[in-house]
Design a protein around this nucleic acid. Structure first.
Lengths: 150, 150
DNA sequence: TTAATAAAAGACTTTTTTGTCCTTTATTAG
DNA sequence: CTAATAAAGGACAAAAAAGTCTTTTATTAA
């Protein structure tokens, strides 16, 4: 038995943690290198590099090569929501997929749990949608440090 | 990028579908063989066999070998909730784990999303907890058939 | 008591996810 | 222009999840 299915994939957890960290960092301006990001969020360095590259291609984060390079967000990126990040990595199925994995499940042809799950999916989406990266700018150093485990 | 993280693991989806199907079947009494279960929920035969064996060891389903054998639920098993099934397979992390995967995250040492996720986790748990297998007894044949895809 | 049936058990394979490493490309400072 | 720096890219490796197959065990009905 698997015995631990979290809400988000590991990849997505790292992505959210990195984006929150970058949001805080970018508030003071300046870029942050992969090594420092990995240290602060407690992830493998090469792995979060890959993840941020992907998010970069999708325009959710910016980066610059060379000395003084690194990852960063710009002013307008504060409006990016956690829902955007989750969608970019885990896709939409948490928000709109059938809880039982039935492809044909829909409003008009609902699985036995369809209507029951509707509210939950909407709540999850709305929470992630309303939580913008910009809102992490003014958080304390203590909360900042707590993007890390292990 | 992975691009599709559902709420439950595939194993758990099959398990829930099989248990709902068995709940309906067992209402009329009688046992159901693996082949028939697999057909009705649209899962690989050997795989759902494995899953049900696991659930059997944990006492969530009953089985009998030999001719006339198969899987079934008894009267009292109608009180089993979907939360019980999910816990048996995906564990508790959907209900109580940190959304960002931080092991030290807790009420007194919360991650930046801890309090926001609290309500959602509770809603998911309560929904699954209040949904008992027994409630699927009287559902129509149409809904029954719709435990299957692919 | 034997033949047939069906689940239990466990080894095995495939696929996906997670994670690493090495080379290339771009940028900057001297 | 050249060294050094840091991300991009892609091939590769390890681990976990999903899925298969074969043998064993239990049960039933003839």
């Amino acid at each position: 038995m698997p015995q631990t299915q979290p809400m988000f994939s590991r990849t997505c957890e790292y992505a959210i943690r990195a984006m929150i960290f970058l949001a805080q960092r970018s508030a003071q301006g300046g870029r942050t290198g992969i090594k420092e990001i990995a240290e602060h969020i407690g992830s493998p360095e090469a792995f979060i590099a890959k993840i941020l590259q992907g998010l970069g291609r999708q325009g959710l984060v910016r980066s610059a090569k060379g000395p003084t390079g690194g990852f960063y967000l710009e002013a307008g990126d504060g409006k990016t929501s956690l829902a955007d990040v989750v969608k970019a990595i885990d896709g939409e199925s948490l928000f709109s997929g059938c809880g039982l994995g039935l492809r044909e499940c829909s409003e008009t042809h609902p699985c036995p749990l369809h209507h029951e799950f509707k509210k939950i999916r909407r709540d999850i989406y709305q929470l992630l949608e309303k939580t913008k990266l910009g809102s992490f700018n003014e958080k304390t150093a203590e909360q900042l440090v707590f993007l890390k485990s292990r």
